[in-house]
């Protein structure tokens, strides 16, 4: 069963990125569960796979407008798709780093992969409920999705 500590670790990894890299903290929205079907997937998704004590995926998915503003806030002038991919990849990397720090001894955490569009590439384990934690930043909202057995 998913624990509160595990969820908090993933959430902290995400908010930490916003606080440090995006120069503006993000707030955590009301978390909920997706029982059937796929959780929300926006235009850009940074994903890590996890094995060991838990098995599944964790991903951060955000819209192009949100990433555009983030890039601008970070002083990036080239608002290209590549940079947006890098951005969600970095968020996933920060989540991964946080998870390694907290669960590194028990978990195997993959290097982040980035998916632009193509939601079919994000495969969640069957019959597992996903936890969706909205990450609100300015007027935008991204999602952190935790889908672990």
């Amino acid at each position: 069963m998913m624990t509160k500590v595990e969820l908090e670790t993933f959430v902290e990894g995400t908010t930490h990125y916003f606080a440090t890299a995006a120069n503006q903290p993000a707030s955590v929205g009301s978390p909920y569960i997706v029982q059937e079907g796929k959780p929300t997937i926006q235009e850009f998704t940074g994903m890590i796979s996890i094995a060991g004590k838990r098995r599944g995926i964790v991903y951060f998915t955000a819209s192009r407008p949100m990433l555009t503003v983030m890039l601008m806030r970070m002083g990036e002038t080239e608002l290209t798709q590549e940079n947006m991919c890098d951005l969600v990849g970095e968020v996933a990397n920060t989540i991964s780093g946080n998870a390694r720090r907290d669960f590194g001894k028990d978990f195997m955490i993959s290097v982040p992969t980035v998916v632009a569009g193509e939601p079919e590439k994000i495969v969640t384990p069957d019959n597992i409920r996903s936890f969706v934690i909205p990450i609100n930043w300015r007027s935008h909202s991204a999602q952190l999705v935790v889908c672990l057995e």
């Binding site: 978390p31 029982q35 409920r129």
Partner: peptide
């Protein structure tokens, strides 16, 4: 209150569903 405070609730909700 913030969304982080609700994390225990979704965990318990998941447990109840299960």
């Amino acid at each position: 209150l913030s969304g982080s405070d609700f994390l225990p609730l979704v965990v318990k909700l998941d447990d109840l569903f299960n």
